[in-house]
């Protein structure tokens, strides 16, 4: 199982060299720390999918002594491990450039990553190979474009909700967000496992 997670690093050996410059680019561009944490988290897990699309990797993995459950579990656990590690690296980079950031930036960046992962991971197994990556890219752009609009719209037209949110303590807000994202991630994991078990290669 650990081996399944580790393979992403072996696969992305060369690509990982671009990881630091990639983060530095965002830092130098003076991006919001939360955004930096988000893109840092996304880097490894989504590149892993890009790699997997290129080969008959599912045939390989399923011919090795792994169960389908494990293969999916490695994806979801791996995403957690790699995003945490990436956030660590990004924090170090921010510190090195003496850019200030708050824990809430990490929480927002990480939270958005897990939300995005929960929504897109199943797509990699539901959609046909070859379409997946573009689908995910488009959905990411759409989300980035309309996401803020929705939030604005909500704050304008649904004052009840915003008021409710405003009245929550920060702890309650973050815990609530974490719980919701955690549940979504777990559901996504379950759905993907079921989908993957029914797949033919």
């Amino acid at each position: 199982m650990f081996n399944l997670i580790r393979r992403d690093v072996i696969l992305q050996k060369r690509l990982l060299l671009t990881f630091i410059p990639f983060i530095l680019f965002f830092i130098i561009m003076d991006s919001h720390p939360a955004l930096i944490f988000l893109v840092a988290s996304i880097f490894i897990p989504f590149n892993a999918y890009a790699y997997d699309e290129k080969t008959e990797v599912n045939i390989l993995l399923n011919s090795l002594p792994y169960t389908r459950k494990e293969i999916i579990a490695a994806r979801y656990l791996g995403a957690i491990i790699y995003s945490l590690a990436s956030i660590g690296v990004a924090s170090a980079a921010l510190l090195a450039f003496s850019k200030p950031f708050a824990l809430s930036d990490i929480a927002i960046g990480g939270g958005l990553f897990f939300l995005f992962a929960a929504l897109t991971f199943p797509l990699f197994y539901i959609l046909k190979q070859g379409y997946i990556f573009s689908a995910v890219l488009i959905s990411f752009l759409v989300l980035a474009a309309i996401g803020p609009q929705i939030v604005l719209y909500m704050s304008d037209h649904l004052p009840a909700i915003t008021e409710f949110l405003m009245n929550l303590s920060t702890t309650a807000l973050y815990t609530g967000g974490a719980v919701i994202i955690g549940v979504l991630y777990a559901v996504s994991w379950g759905v993907t496992t079921v989908v993957y078990q029914r797949k033919a290669f």
């Binding site: 081996n3 008959e56 090795l64 002594p65 792994y66």
Partner: peptide, 20 residues
Amino acid sequence: NVFFEGLNLKDIKRIVGPAY
């Protein structure tokens, strides 16, 4: 070929070997 085509045999061994 079902192995990751960009990798060399040593790396493939590092991925496949520990599976067994």
